[in-house]
């Protein structure tokens, strides 16, 4: 099953820039997973075609279907086509007025796909104005409320006080995105195969924004304890993913911000292999270690 990540957020927040940044940074490291990008927007599509080619990927455009009936379903049609082309990852860039969580709920129930997270881009510079807008205020608040994880752009255009104020006002886990660069491991559901655990970083991480932890084991985890552990993932852990073998079976884990899902997996390697990505430089910088301890508990108390 192909993981599917939905990237939403209002017009001008920087969704396309983030996707182009992702494609470019992966290509630089010769890590070229096959990525398909589905774009639902009004007008010119600005996904960099050269970059997409490097990933042997493809960009597909969707237009919103007929407004009165469901006879036309571009998104479903696109997912059907892509299913046959064995991509490693599908990214959906929703239109600015879409409810990304709704798109995600729709798309991940499409046969052949699994959940890769709903990320919503927040435009730090304009968020206050947008939130109060007569026409799009409720929409933007709902986009944020239903996101798994927020990506905040344009913070460099605010002063320290404004940044702090914005950060405090966000209702959920958020990651700072500067100049369109967002760590690929945050965006993608597949695990990077090049985690340098000694540095606590993935190969994709060029900043000091994150600490990364890899966990591998051949032992079988306890399912109930695993669920408790996932419910209680410490705040700075913004992403966790990989595969798990526990007392009830084998699973794909996707944890994005506030939401985790386990999906039954048939063709996964043996054992458990997980990656945790947490915000560094937070007061609870030791959370990664605490996380590991929690996981060890889930394992040992079987």
């Amino acid at each position: 099953m192909t993981p599917l990540t939905v990237l939403g957020g209002y017009l001008g927040a920087g969704k396309t820039t983030i996707i182009n940044g992702l494609l470019a940074s992966l290509a630089q490291q010769n890590d070229n997973p096959r990525i398909a990008v589905l774009v639902n927007d009004f007008g010119a599509i600005n996904i960099d075609a050269k970059l997409i080619r490097k990933h042997r990927g493809r960009t597909m455009e969707m237009t919103s279907g007929c407004v009165c009936c469901n006879i036309q379903d571009d998104l479903g049609g696109a997912l059907d086509i892509l299913r046959g082309e064995s991509f490693e990852q599908v990214l959906i860039e929703t239109s600015g007025v879409a409810y990304p969580a709704k798109v995600a709920d729709y798309a991940v129930t499409w046969p052949g796909y699994r959940r890769g997270g709903t990320l919503v881009v927040v435009d730090a510079l304009n968020i206050d104005r947008h939130k109060d807008d007569k026409f799009v205020g409720p929409l933007i608040k709902e986009q944020i409320a239903e996101a798994d994880l927020l990506l905040v752009t344009k913070l460099d255009q605010l002063d320290c006080n404004q940044v702090q104020k914005l950060w405090d006002s966000l209702p959920k886990r958020a990651v700072r995105v500067d100049h369109g660069y967002c760590n690929a491991d945050i965006l993608l559901a597949s695990t990077s195969n090049s985690i340098d655990t000694s540095k606590g970083k993935t190969a994709n991480d060029h900043s000091d924004q994150f600490r990364t932890l890899a966990y591998q084991s051949d032992r079988v985890l306890d399912h109930c304890r695993l669920e408790v552990f996932l419910d209680e993932l410490p705040e700075p852990v913004v992403r966790a993913k990989g595969w798990i073998h526990d007392s009830e079976g084998r699973w794909w884990l996707q944890s994005v911000g506030d939401r985790w899902t386990l999906e039954l997996a048939s063709a996964v390697p043996a054992g458990t292999s997980l990656v945790f990505i947490a915000l560094a430089n937070t007061p609870s910088d030791r959370t990664i270690d605490a996380t590991l301890a929690g996981l060890e508990q889930a394992l040992h108390r079987l």
Partner: peptide, 22 residues
């Protein structure tokens, strides 16, 4: 075993509908 397709009842809704409609 997709959520929005009730296969035993042949019922397709939401994304399940899209699947059938395509």
């Amino acid at each position: 075993n997709r959520k929005q397709i009730d296969y035993p009842n042949g019922h397709f809704f939401e994304s399940g509908l899209g699947y059938a409609v395509n």
